[in-house]
Every structure is written in C-alpha cells, then in structure tokens.
C-alpha cells in the first residue's frame, strides 16, 4: 500500500509544555487510521498540525509527497478537516453553507454541483437544508459538517471525534457514512476517546498517551497481542506495560 500521509518524529511544545514527544505513523490510501487515547493525550494537536492549523516544533509531515512546512497550501487543497467542536455559520441556510464551502474547492460549475449534491446526500438533512443553521440541533449540525468534510472527496479526511455529542442513532449513521465513503478511495485519519467506535471504524489504530504513541496495529492484532476482548482493555494493558 502507498502511504498518503507520513508523520515522522513529530513534536509540539506549548511554551514549556510538551504536547507531542516525537510521534510517527503512516496512513495508507483508502485506509481509516484511528488515534485513540484519553483527553489531553495529544490526538487533537496531531490532527491540527496535519490540518495546517498548528506548526510543529520538530519532526516531518509529508502528504502525497508534499512537505507540510514548505507547502501548507497544497495540503489544504487535498485535505478536509472536521474539528471536534466545529460550528457552521448560523445565519446561513444549510444548503448555502455547503455551497459556500464547496466553492473553495470546485474548479468549475459541474464540480460545484457535484460537491453540493454529495454534501446533501451525506448530511441527509432533506428539506431542513433550506433552513438556517441556527435552527439546527447539535446532531443536525454535526451531520451537515460531516457532509461538508466529505463532499469534496478529499484525499485525506481528518475527523476529530466525529460523533462527539451525538446520540446513539446519529452516531451509528455517521459511522456508516464514514465507512461507505472510504470505499470510494479516500483515506481517513480520525481520533476518538471512544475506543469501541474506533475499533468499529478503523483498519489500523495507534494508541496515544501523554504525547507518545504506545503501540499501533490493526484492532485485531492489538487485541491478540494484549489478549484483550476490546480496545479499551488493550489500551489499559498497554498503558500499564509502558509505565
């Protein structure tokens, strides 16, 4: 498999506080790669660096051959980022929001229509797309934002806690949507502290704690390695063996 994303010895310090202590991993094409760990482990910092929001203190990130430090613009053309606590413009209608975001990526009218149509399909909000975002529930907003993140078929979708704040039904729908989109060839890098969700979604996962990757592999490999029934137990055993 060809890696679309390669992260090598990535470090990030917030003043004196080291948030990432040199993490490395690769994401292959068409793969869902999950970062799992507790709050404050460094998951969001990693995703924000790859999404070009934060600059790394050290290390290298390359994406489709482009270097993050040299070509952040190239990253932005090909990635799509869904932050954990993202919002949409409250005064815009859902459909207008999708169009507004799609225009940044579309090269012509045909592409624009295609992106909007896909966004409508993924968000699955039907007639409510004609209402203002300010009237949406948290679940509806999250689905709209997921539609926005995936509609342009990015080479890499970066999803930070994609089901954050959603109820069971909406969470299931979002997971199914992500799964089905990967089949169309896009790669996904996601983070969650919900390890069962990551186990369901990811082809491979990295266990991250206190700014370091403790272990990585497919959920099945890790469960076998740590003789655990699920990733939660894997994580617990992994933390214990590393401490």
């Amino acid at each position: 498999m060809t890696p679309v994303l390669e992260v090598e010895s990535l470090k990030k310090n917030y003043g004196q506080l080291p948030a990432l202590k040199g993490i490395s991993f690769k994401v292959d094409q068409g793969e869902i790669f999950g970062l799992i760990g507790p709050n404050g482990a460094g998951k969001t910092t990693t995703l924000r660096i790859i999404a070009t929001l934060l600059t790394p203190s050290d290390g290298r990130v390359s994406f489709l051959g482009f270097d993050l430090k040299k070509d952040p613009e190239k990253f932005r053309e090909k990635i799509s980022y869904l932050p954990e606590e993202a919002g949409a413009y409250r005064n815009m209608k859902g459909l207008d929001y999708l169009e507004f975001m799609a225009r940044f990526y579309a090269n012509n009218g045909v592409e624009l229509k295609e992106y909007i149509s896909r966004g409508e399909q993924i968000s699955d909000l039907g007639a409510r797309l004609k209402d203002k975002v300010g009237t949406y529930s948290k679940g509806m907003t999250r689905k709209l934002l997921l539609g926005r993140a995936l509609m342009t078929k990015p080479a890499l979708a970066i999803l930070d806690e994609p089901t954050s704040g959603l109820d069971v039904i909406n969470s299931l729908e979002v997971r199914e949507t992500i799964k089905s989109f990967v089949k169309q060839g896009i790669s996904v890098l996601l983070s969650s502290h919900n390890m069962l969700e990551v186990e369901f979604l990811s082809d491979r996962v990295a266990l991250i704690d206190q700014g370091q990757i403790l272990d990585a592999g497919s959920p099945q490999e890790l469960k076998e390695k740590y003789q655990a029934p699920n990733l939660e137990i894997v994580f617990k055993s992994c933390v214990r063996s590393n401490s």
């Binding site: 070009t52 929001l53 932005r76 980022y81 919002g87 413009y89 975001m101 940044f104």
Partner: peptide, 13 residues
C-alpha cells in the same frame, strides 16, 4: 461559533 478552524483549513491564503 467555532467556524474559524474550518475556515483556516480551506484552500485560501
């Protein structure tokens, strides 16, 4: 409204 992060990752300088 938590829209700035998204805006900063779109392909515009």
């Amino acid at each position: 409204n938590k829209t700035l992060e998204t805006l900063l990752t779109v392909p515009i300088s």
